[in-house]
Amino acid sequence: MNDHRHWLYRPENIRRLWRWGFGILAASVLAQLVFEVYGHFGFDDWFGFNAVYGFLTCTAMVLFAKLLGVLVKRDDSYYQDNSEESGGGP
């Protein structure tokens, strides 16, 4: 079958990209076996610390943003349906 989609949008390539992605992730952690990574403060000395720290802090930031979104998100015409914005043009 001739697939006219861009190569990035073909399912078999997407699967391949995921596999490569996980390979690179693993490689970045295993690289620690070659280049020793010392922690700076003692408690950050263990294997793969930066990987775990990056993942967890990002998860925390996304969840915090999600929670804050409940409070601060408004429809994107929020400031337009208001007489406050009715001024003259240039």
Binding site: G21, S28, V37, A51, G54
Partner: peptide
């Protein structure tokens, strides 16, 4: 070597967090 590896781990796994979330 240490700085590059630590930085790559930090960034790549934040990328994983992006796609996971």
């Amino acid at each position: 070597g240490e700085h590059v590896v630590a930085q790559l781990q930090l960034l790549l796994f934040s990328g994983l967090a992006f796609f996971a979330l």
